[in-house]
Design a protein around this nucleic acid. Structure first.
Length: 907
RNA sequence: GCCGGUGUGGUGGAAUUGGUAGACACGCGGGAUUCAAAAUCCCGUGCUCCUAGAGCGUGUCGGUUCGAGUCCGACCACCGGUACCA
């Protein structure tokens, strides 16, 4: 028996010591050629803002539990960490406080790495990198070029949000109420040459792949499905109706033989005189129709093309509607002030989101009429309508008011016909008060009559194709990914613009296109554009003078493949074999806020890498398992001066007082920690006061991982007390020869009870970790700890139970576990120890306590041997005093005995 | 509006998937130890009734069942996502 020493547990001393021990033993360095099965655990890498927050701690603690547990289970675990280091904050810091984005970023990385190391995560730091490392972005440029070769990259002119003060493009999220988030200037829509990744190429595969991701939250899969927004339908051309528009020709002084163009040119020149004389002339819709026909003839010789998912309702069509931004609308606007006014009115509602939701339907009749494709001599009026979006489909629709709510509202307002063509299968339709969008049987629809909705859609498409009016198509909401950013601190796009040869890729041998360090932020816009030499180069094709692309890649590109880069050992170029071996990531952990963008872009990237032959990953799926964790929240407090620190608020006689000022405070919502609400808790302070293990334990206990956890001082002290309790139990244990790997196979009596408790706890702890329900594992660890603290014996059962406890705690509080392990004479490090072996026999009790119900109400309980025959259990149950009293001689109608569970007596 | 989720003590949350509702933790109350405090340990703690015991109790209403937090139907509230997507 070894000599006992008693001293309080001191994390400030033990934690750095064990971190050093892990480093020296290189326990967390993943081997690329290991014979063990692989497990890739990954948390979303952080942006180097300069400080870590509690959200990071929770995120990485969860990943760490999985990583440490899987290692104990015999897996070769890859658990790396890096930095998502490009982006605007670095540039903004440089603009605001001087300095250089590069220095700022690497400085922040230094500041953040230290506390992360102090948290004792089982990370393979040897694979660390930052996306702004030249090595990293060189490879990204190489991937860009491969994607280009493969047809996955192209450039086109597209609309962007342009901030005229900062001279830069803004992302949609950076435009608030139509103004730039920094400058406050009204944002303009500008056409600019932009680079795009062809993510739509994989639209179908990205949807289908979602069905295979059975270890992703349903929520995230649904969000991606909606984002891609696949819909099946068809495009239909509506041809202009000559007769319908000829009715208005008189208004234009039409004479036989006069060409439409001659007539209209004359009319328009007269309009020009009116405008010059400030005599705006409002035309009747019929008059506009003639002009529309003319405009249409120029713009759309084939007709007005609409997109619909409901061609089965074509017989119920009563109008055509164009978007206010439709090219035909624009043609009309050139000639008619009321169209311009109408566009302005629509645009007014445009910006604020609430207004859009409440916006009433607005329309303007163009007077133009088109032919119905299926009904001879029937024409439909063409309107301009504010609810038709240019960005989806063709920017034009046909309206079927009876079966589309928006069309219904529109038709009701403007007195357009509402013709039902789908009859609900239950009951007949009465007076329509809203659109019926459900399934049913087609009526009033000629050749479609009697068909179901789906059959009707098929039949209608077939007919439209046969008549040459259009074709069945699939429409996606997803658009190609615009990646050009007019920013310095990002990965330069490796392209050269040659006046003769156009856009030319930078030859691979000339990579990297490196960011120059000597840049100035003294004037707005992209400093690369003003750099003395960066831009100037020669064309790799013709050798002539050319200009280098100065845009950089969207930083979402950086985070779209970093997990593949981790697979390769430090300093190696992109390692195809390693990436193919390690991917997919087995468990990815991060916040839901990346549910669509980052996770979708990554799924696109792996498919691109696969199809360019850079990785062997048939499924194309980068993340086999995904877990989205909740946030760390904290109470907020406010005085009339604004938000105050929760630590400064105390309660006195039921009133909250802000101590530094003496003012009364009110409690606000419990919300995500945020600097502006002053409800943050600095992990550094917590580590300082309580140690890393306590911080980790707290953020994992109580709340289920997917839900928010509320930070509380009491909760942290609870974790602190638990740590001390474990240590106290270990200190009061005599060290035996076998140490914590002892197995007390001949335990009896109390010792056996303890053994059972330990193995039962182990089973549930394991289950909790596997199912990502760490809070239940924590509860089981508490139970086992309580059982041990009550156990007086200094025997093998105690040692075995402690051994199970310590190894179960190890993924959560690794430093404490090491210290206890060493104290108990454990061999080596817990970090590399195997997970305890479960003794299944210990899970089965010899005797069970069975509750007895009478008519479903619990009246007593009996203790019986596990395998006692049913009739004996029944007899025992009936004779239990309280049960017998309740029955009180009443006839027993039925007795249900569920072995080992419950007895229910029915009277 | 649509899609997804959640609703259980004073609080965070458990509940082997239809079988003792409230594990575990926080908080609170009482006690032990202490000159005292901290720490620690023990007991109690869903609500109601005077105890043995009984009644009520998992958002609401109804249903299935020997038995429902769990299954079915209808609703309510809150949270998240999304939106005139044709």
């Amino acid at each position: 028996m070894a000599e006992q020493t008693t001293h309080p547990y001191n994390p400030a001393e033990t934690e750095p010591r064990w971190q050093l021990a892990w480093d020296e033993a290189e326990c967390f360095i993943a081997k690329n050629d290991s014979p063990k099965p692989k497990f890739y655990a990954l948390e979303m890498f952080p942006y180097p803002s300069g400080r870590i927050h509690m959200g990071h701690v929770r995120n990485y603690a969860m990943g760490d539990v999985v990583a440490r547990y899987k290692r104990a289970r015999g897996f070769e675990v890859l658990h790396p960490m890096g930095w998502d280091a490009f982006g605007m904050p670095a540039e903004n810091a440089a603009i605001e406080t001087g300095g250089h984005p590069k220095d700022w970023t690497y400085g922040n990385i230094e500041q953040m790495r230290a506390p992360m190391k102090r948290l004792g995560f089982a990370l393979d730091w040897s694979r660390e990198f930052a996306t702004c490392d030249v090595d990293y972005y060189t490879e990204q440029q190489r991937i860009f070029l491969k994607f280009w070769e493969k047809g996955l990259v192209y450039s086109k002119t597209a609309k962007v949000n342009w901030d005229p003060v900062d001279n830069t493009v803004l992302a949609n999220e950076q435009v608030i109420d139509g103004k730039g988030w920094r400058s406050g200037a009204v944002v303009e829509q500008r056409d600019m040459e932009q680079w795009f990744f062809k993510i739509t190429e994989y639209a179908d595969e990205l949807i289908e792949g979602l069905d295979t991701l059975d270890r992703w939250p349903e929520k995230v899969r649904t969000m991606q499905r909606n984002w891609i927004g696949k819909s099946e339908g068809c495009r239909i051309n509506f041809e202009i109706d000559e007769l319908g528009n000829s009715q208005a020709l008189d208004a234009f002084g039409y004479q036989d033989g006069m060409s439409l163009k001659t007539m209209l040119d004359g009319f328009l020149s007269k309009r020009a005189e009116d405008i010059a004389a400030r005599r705006p002339r409002q035309l009747k819709p019929d008059d506009r129709g003639v002009t529309a026909a003319w405009a249409w003839a120029h713009t759309y010789p084939d007709g007005i093309q609409v997109y619909t998912t409901r061609p089965d309702t074509l017989f119920g069509a009563s109008f055509i509607a164009l978007s206010p931004d439709h090219p035909l609308t624009k043609e009309l606007a050139a000639a008619f002030p009321e169209v311009v006014d109408f566009q302005a009115e629509c645009a007014k509602i445009g910006t604020s989101e609430e207004a859009i939701a409440q916006a009433p339907k607005l329309g303007l009749d163009t007077g133009l009429r088109v032919d119905h494709p299926f009904i001879k001599d029937k024409t439909l009026p063409v309107w301009i309508a504010n609810f038709v979006l240019m960005g989806y489909g063709t920017g034009a629709i046909f309206g079927c008011p009876a079966h589309d709510q928006r069309d219904f509202d529109f038709a009701t307002k403007y007195g357009l016909p509402i013709l039902p063509v789908v009859q609900s299968d239950e009951g007949e339709a009465g007076e329509l008060i809203e659109a019926y969008t459900g399934d049913g049987t087609l009526i009033n629809s000629d050749f479609l009559n009697g068909l179901s909705k789906d059959d009707g859609i098929r039949a209608a498409i077939e007919k439209i194709e046969e008549m040459g009016y259009g074709e069945g198509t699939t429409q996606y909401r997803l658009r190609d990914w615009g990646v050009s950013r007019q920013r310095y601190w990002g990965c330069p796009i490796p392209v050269i613009h040659c006046p003769k040869c156009g856009a030319v890729p930078v030859p691979e041998a000339d990579l990297p296109v490196e960011l120059p360090y000597d840049i100035e932020f003294d004037s707005p816009g992209n400093p690369l554009d003003r750099h003395p030499t960066f831009k100037h180069c020669t064309c790799p094709k013709c050798g002539g003078e050319a200009e280098r692309e100065t845009d950089t890649l969207d930083t979402f590109a950086d985070s779209s493949w970093y997990y593949a880069k981790f697979a390769g050992k430090d300093g190696s170029p992109f390692d195809k074999k390693a990436a193919s071996d390690w991917l997919p990531v087995d468990q990815y952990v991060g916040g839901v806020e990346h549910a669509v963008l980052h996770l979708l872009y990554s799924r696109f990237f792996t498919r691109g890498l696969r199809d360019c032959g850079l990785i062997n990953l048939p499924s194309g799926e980068p993340f086999a398992g995904l877990f989205t964790q909740g946030m760390v929240t904290h109470a907020t407090y406010e005085t009339d001066d604004g938000w105050v620190l929760p630590a400064d608020v105390t309660e006195k006689d039921g009133v909250l007082i802000h101590m530094p000022t003496g003012k009364t405070a009110t409690k606000g919502d419990v919300i995500k920690m945020s600097k502006s609400k002053k409800n943050t808790v600095d992990p550094n302070d917590i580590i300082e006061t309580y140690g890393a293990d306590v911080a980790r334990w707290f953020v994992l206990s109580d709340s289920p991982p997917e839900r928010d956890v509320e930070w509380s001082e009491d909760g942290v002290r609870g974790a602190w007390n638990f740590q001390k309790k474990v240590w106290r139990i270990v200190q009061s244990t005599n060290v035996s020869d076998h140490g914590p790997t002892t197995i007390a196979s001949d335990a009896k009596g109390d010792a056996l009870t303890l053994r059972r408790a330990a193995h039962k706890a182990l089973a549930k702890i394991t289950e909790g970790i596997e199912a990502f329900r760490f809070n239940t594992s924590v509860a089981q660890i508490y139970e086992l700890t309580n059982a041990l603290s009550k156990y007086d014996g200094q025997d093998a059962a105690r040692m075995e139970a402690l051994g199970i406890l310590i190894r179960s705690i190890a993924p959560f509080m690794p430093h404490l576990a090491e210290e206890c392990w060493a104290q108990l004479g454990g061999e080596g490090l817990v970090a590399t120890a195997d997970w305890p072996t479960l003794d299944e026999a210990m899970l089965v009790e010899d005797t069970v306590t069975m509750p007895i119900q009478v008519n479903g109400k619990r009246r007593g309980e009996i203790s019986v041997p596990k395998d006692m025959p049913k009739d004996e259990v029944e007899a025992l149950a009936l004779s239990e005093p309280n049960v017998a009293r309740t029955i009180d001689g009443a006839p027993v109608r039925k007795v249900i005995v569920v072995p080992g569970r419950i007895v229910n007596i029915v009277i």
